[in-house]
Design a protein around this nucleic acid. Structure first.
Length: 897
RNA sequence: GGGCGAUUAGCUCAGUUGGUUAGAGUGCUGGUUUCACAUACCAGAGGUCACUGGUUCGAGCCCAGUAUCGCCCACCA
């Protein structure tokens, strides 16, 4: 062994993480080209928004991505995990505008389109590269040579191509509809970007006096300022109270405008007076009522959220200031009949939290019905598997009630809508390339639509546009459909469904075979993790403190089947205080490090370049060896299953148990006996098993903890050049050894019993005790004899006697383990009272168990109905407990006497 | 208003098709600086599995309802 290869005393993540990423990258392991054969396995990552840096949700998402892709790579697939970023129209423009205002007190209009776009591109460069750096710090083995951005040259082409094809199919149309206007962002948004929030407000009841024959009408509203735009009052056609009123007029207070009473189904007779005010320009329902009755549209609230000239003397007031003023004036006029407290849902923009103003506007829409019908069979027939499956059901539900999608945005950052209007003949031209001249009249005065497309319109092409579509590239042929889409549930409709639609339409394939919906990361008390709430943490803080491997593992360890992860970290003002689970994972990494260090230290007499150390000796008879191999192969099989099922928590736990509880706590401890026993052959043998199992263990942990495992793997005998591309251990059932596991359990039980006595009696580890073991069967006796040295060492025993004829020493502590009675002679070391207490407690537990079983076995219904093997099993257990119980009682009575 | 998920030890969570005295980590108590690791080792205490019914020989697990928390969908004043 070379001295410089020795392992440091403790594990230092920083020292090893930096070097391996570069090594893997340089060797080209992240690229599918690294393998010449094998089935392709593809994942395109959900492109993070270039709005900012990655948060804990991303950290989880990419821990999963990289774990899966490393697992598949080791299984021999030609793996491609394709990274990229999303331009995130509204989000990014908002950030840059904010910055512009904070730093220079300027708006986008002050600097103009070109200058703003320049700044956004700078922003994109900065955050885009930060994001990729963060991913590399986490160890993500993505193919950076295929990195994409939703606004790079080729991608823009795909987006425009899509628009034109949709348009030609009649699926994109321009029309006037009620849309969601965000006065803050100055753009329309789609229904999916609206977040309904419960708000405590009021319900104001206002009296509109009748004109002539028209009766006085009381209407109720949650938005009094909209009354300025009322152009009618509706009542239900079958409402007896109002039949005579229909066709008459009332006077709109404050505006002194006569408005008609119309009959419309929309009015609910059960609500209030049964009459409802109609504001066609500011309410989706009223808009439709207005259409049906040809009521004029009077827009009193403008695009800036302030009252328009149509609001008369209220013009220029902010909509909420105006509300107060309207209420005050109505009260002064005596028209405010009453005010009720009222909680109702109010639409907010999900990005900026501003209250949405519904307005009728001319916009571009995608007609969704045909696209929905195109993919409904795909979901119904489970051509795409959702994990968990319920999200597939929700998607079907959503598609069934789908509405058209507003895709134009009044923003500057994004894909310009490829539509030109001829200024001379007003011809509309839709084309991927700039048309130069009007195809109808030849004019060069072409004006492009000023709007850009919804970000999600471009994201919808992600899996195939990143592989080269609309060109028929080799990548597209080889890697599409992709295998897995790993995403949060918040964008299942916004994004995932639309990807399926576009892939079906343009590529004629599903875009991915499986959708894995991962949990949402929350704070430890179940709140949202967000910087504005002060509850966010930067994954880099975790990495800095516990290392990238431990950070990944801590996320995976908490990533089970539940819909949320309450990340256990203590957070204060967006900074990490501490995280018990990350600490546990860091300790686990250190444990692995030290187990390796132990093996390394015990290889001084071996040549570590000798690959024969990677092969098991074929004559393994020692219980410890057979047992650890059996455990290893069970672990490998279990981990394979867990990873295939995307149960990362289970995989992490399985690994943890094997490494810590099996390999370290038992095998390494037992190995010491033969390592130091002086028998050269035995020593060589145990060295081999230590090495082989350690090497296999490193392979099993690599997808979860890539840096640490590669570092250690390189220090031990191995085949191949890097762990990242070493074969995955699937688990060999031929190595399962039930007998070894049973014998080991007996030995562990006996050692546990002695330790329990020692612990209860407070016997310091330094003192070795005398122990007598009395097996009641030949097989138990044999097991004890075979493991005698192990028992003596691990239970710290000086004189160990084993025999069926053993006679209980007079004053002794005792225990029963299956077919073995354990005696520890007291001889002064032991406190009799304590032993009596211990036995009494043990007896109490056994009595309870025996009583329960007696009751069960005395129940004729149980004997009659339960399967015979269950009954038999219960009988055996009962006998076993009873046997232990009577022996312990006997021992207690001796002590008492 | 509709749908879904969660509720197990002080805390964060596991718990396969119903069948041992319900587990882990952390925290707590006691003991150890034993030649890989004090980021460790050994032992111990700690739970009416949210509640109420039901199905069953048998329920943490299946069914119904209730409560609390969370998520999604929904144009009702």
């Amino acid at each position: 062994m070379n001295e410089k290869d020795a392992l440091d005393k403790s594990y230092d993540p920083e020292a090893i993480e930096s070097k391996w990423y570069d090594f893997w990258f340089r060797k080209g392991y992240f690229r599918p080209e690294f393998r010449k054969d094998g089935f392709p396995y593809t994942i395109t990552i959900p492109p993070p928004n270039v709005t900012g840096e990655l948060h804990m949700g991303h950290a989880l998402q990419h821990a999963i991505h990289d774990t899966v892709i490393r697992f598949k790579r080791m299984q021999g697939f030609r793996t491609l995990c394709l990274p990229g970023t999303d331009h995130a129209g509204i989000g990014t423009q908002m950030k840059v505008e904010q910055q512009l205002w904070e730093q220079e007190k300027k708006t986008r209009h002050d600097i103009g389109r070109e200058a703003l776009l320049k700044r956004i591109w700078d922003w994109k460069e900065k955050y885009g590269s930060t994001i990729f750096r963060q991913l590399r710090e986490m160890g993500c083995s993505y193919d950076w040579s295929r990195e994409r951005f939703t606004m790079d040259e080729g991608y823009v082409k795909a987006v425009l191509e899509t628009f034109v094809r949709f348009y030609e199919k009649g699926w994109i149309y321009r029309g006037k509809r009620m849309v969601n206007w965000c006065p803050q962002c100055g753009t329309v948004i789609s229904d999916l970007e609206v977040e309904e929030k419960e708000v405590k407000g009021h319900l104001w009841h206002i009296q509109y006096p009748g004109i002539g024959e028209g009766p006085d009408v009381v209407v109720a509203t949650t938005r009094p300022e909209t009354m300025l735009g009322d152009t009618g009052v509706a009542v239900h056609p079958l409402d007896m109270r109002w039949q005579k009123a229909v066709g008459k007029q009332v006077m709109l207070p404050l505006m002194n405008r006569p408005i008609p009473i119309v009959a419309d189904d929309y009015a609910d007779p059960e609500m209030g007076s049964g009459a409802v005010k109609v504001t066609p320009s500011h309410d989706p329902n009223d808009y439709e009522v207005g259409q049906r009755h040809h009521l004029p549209e009077i827009q009193v609230i403008g695009l800036d959220g302030k009252m328009t000239d149509a609001a008369g003397r209220f013009a220029g007031q902010d909509r909420y200031v105006c509300r107060k003023n309207v209420i005050a004036e109505l009260e002064a006029l005596g028209r405010m009949v009453k005010v009720d407290d009222h909680t109702h849902s109010v639409p907010h923009h999900d990005r900026c939290d501003t209250v949405i103003e519904p307005l009728p506007m001319e916009q571009w829409f995608v007609s969704m019905r045909d696209l929905a019908d195109l993919i409904l069979p795909v979901l119904r027939e489970k051509q795409i598997v959702y994990v968990p499956d319920r999200f597939r059901e929700y998607s079907i539900e959503w598609l069934t009630n789908i509405r058209d999608w507003c895709i134009s945005r009044q923003l500057w950052w994004g894909h310009r809508i490829p539509v030109w209007t001829c200024d001379d003949c007003h011809q509309v031209i839709v084309s991927v390339d700039f048309p130069e001249v009007c195809s109808a009249c030849g004019s060069q005065k072409l004006i492009q639509d000023p709007d850009v497309l919804d970000t999600w319109f471009s994201s919808a092409l992600w899996p195939f546009a990143t592989l080269g579509w609309p060109d028929e590239t080799e990548d597209l042929k080889l890697f599409h459909p992709t295998n897995l889409m790993i995403t949060g549930r918040d964008i299942l409709y916004l994004w995932v469904i639309r990807m399926i639609m576009t892939a079906e339409e343009f590529v004629g394939e599903i875009p991915f075979k499986t959708v894995l919906v991962h949990p949402t990361v929350q704070t430890r008390d179940g709140r949202r993790m967000s910087k504005s709430l002060g509850t966010g943490i930067d994954p880099r803080e975790l990495i800095g403190r516990y290392g990238a491997d431990a950070t990944r593992l801590s996320l995976l360890y908490q990533c089970g089947s539940s819909q949320d992860i309450r990340f256990d970290a203590e957070v204060k003002d967006n900074h990490l205080q501490d995280s018990p689970i990350a600490e546990m994972c860091r300790n686990f990494c250190n444990k692995i490090w030290n187990a390796s260090r132990f093996v390394h230290m015990n290889m001084a007499d071996r040549d570590l370049a000798d690959v024969s150390l990677t092969v098991l000796p074929d004559d393994l008879t020692d219980l410890a060896d057979r047992w650890i191999l059996s455990r290893f192969h069970h672990t490998a099989e279990q981990m394979t299953q867990s990873l295939e099922a995307y149960r990362f928590d289970e995989a992490a736990r399985t690994l943890y148990d094997f490494v810590w509880s099996a390999y370290c706590d038992w095998y390494v401890e037992m190995a010491k006996v033969r390592l130091n026993g002086g028998d050269v052959v035995a020593r060589k043998k145990v060295q081999s098993v230590l090495c082989v199992v350690l090497e296999g263990m490193l392979r099993l942990m690599h997808p979860l903890v890539p840096f640490l495992s590669e570092e250690l793997w390189q220090k031990f005998p191995h085949r191949g050049e890097a762990l990242i591309v070493a074969p995955w251990p699937e688990g060999d059932r031929a190595r399962f050894d039930g007998v070894a596991e049973e014998e080991m359990a007996l030995m562990q039980g006996v050692i546990g019993a002695v330790r329990n006595i020692r612990g209860t009696m407070r016997i310091p580890p330094g003192i070795r005790v005398t122990v007598l073991l009395k097996p009641s069967s030949a097989s138990a006796a044999q097991t004890l004899e075979a493991t005698k040295t192990y028992i003596a060492e691990l239970a710290r025993i000086e004189n160990l006697t084993i025999g069926t004829q053993v006679i209980r020493p007079e004053a002794s502590a005792s225990a029963v383990v299956g077919e073995v009675e354990v005696f520890v002679p007291l001889s002064g070391v032991i406190n009799l009272d304590v032993e009596r207490q211990r036995l009494t407690k043990e007896i109490g537990g056994l009595e309870k168990a025996v009583m329960g079983l007696d009751k069960k076995l005395g129940n004729e219904a149980f004997l009659k109905n339960a399967p015979a093997d269950v009954v038999e099993k219960e009988r055996q257990r009962r006998d076993e407990y009873q046997n232990a119980l009577s022996k312990l009682k006997e021992n207690l009575s001796v002590l008492a006497g």
